[in-house]
Design a protein around this nucleic acid. Sequence first.
DNA 1: CGCGTAATTGAAAAGTATCAACACTGGTGG
DNA 2: CCACCAGTGTTGATACTTTTCAATTACGCG
Lengths: 192, 192
Amino acid sequence: MIRVNQELLKFMSGFEPPETNGFASQHKFKPKKIILEQAARIEFVFIIKSGIAKCYRLEENGSQFIQEFFGEGEIFGEIEMFNNDESFSYIEALTDLIVYQISRKNFNKLLEENPKFNRLILNALAAKIKYKAIRHSFHQLNPIETNLLRLKEQFPDLLKMISKADIANYLGITERSLNRSLKLLKERKLIG
Amino acid sequence: MIRVNQELLKFMSGFEPPETNGFASQHKFKPKKIILEQAARIEFVFIIKSGIAKCYRLEENGSQFIQEFFGEGEIFGEIEMFNNDESFSYIEALTDLIVYQISRKNFNKLLEENPKFNRLILNALAAKIKYKAIRHSFHQLNPIETNLLRLKEQFPDLLKMISKADIANYLGITERSLNRSLKLLKERKLIG
DNA sequence: CGCGTAATTGAAAAGTATCAACACTGGTGG
DNA sequence: CCACCAGTGTTGATACTTTTCAATTACGCG
């Protein structure tokens, strides 16, 4: 549920000051800080050095759907670079966050000149696609209880780290439904 | 709904016989032919030259969820190359299908040696991610009727090309619900 | 303590699935 | 030419699930 990319993180640590070579800078954000706006022009790619962010979309009816939770080494803003379009989701810090920030120009330069980086990005994109495909499918074809059990299995500390509202938005359900399901699962001793 | 990638198609047409250079071969499939199995080892990347295929996942409870419909220039099998894993979905021909087929080795070679191809693949992956993100979000946060209207808007010939069963599986609903919604929309003169 | 945010719960309304029966269509063989 | 069949599409009745709405409680922090 909270995804990470250790390989990319390791690669980026090569850009630590003072060896940044001007490629990447570092920035800090406080919880609840919006890092990227939906429908905004994007000039930087970000890679998380530490902390957790949530990526969500706001639909016209005002409700939000959480795409994923980004942990260490996860990249965002790159999709917009490729399709050269406005952002299609918000990125918001959930914890104290430190990110590497790479300009459009440097991102493209790295892609072209550094085969290792190029492959890391290809892998990262492929991983996102697979994650989304499996998630959407499982989501649609299983009841809420099953989805919750799967979440708890993949990420036992779920309820300690993520607010009920965010979990509900991640599952695309209301908090009311989330609470009912959690209560049921507890009664059946399926979760703690 | 039926996605296409004209740029990639155009690039691939450079590999037409007799100029294939051994990079890509061509293959034909009949409707209903399964081209890729879920949970199978994959040795080739495919790019559609003509026709339509459906990409779907089979969940343990036996129901299927359609990820997308691939049209001209769409690529599949590439995700499995990157994360070096088994296939996570089926690919099935819906119409007569002609595909370019590239071996793992040649795919990697092209990626490394041909910057244009490399960028086309990056763009294709980014487009898939954006498509999936927006689709899942819209899907979750809107009622069936709204989803149907969106489909009809994006792809007016929907009902002529795709079976009711497939449309229902794409929307993650039963055929019964699909029919009820279609009837309602027709009564309200919102669709033809 | 008091305030705002987050979490919980009940009751009614709305939405969707399930199940089962029936209609339509195109193709096949007697 | 008709009878039959299989696949596809249609519909109704009922049961189940989820949302909506509103009221209440718990918690963290200045």
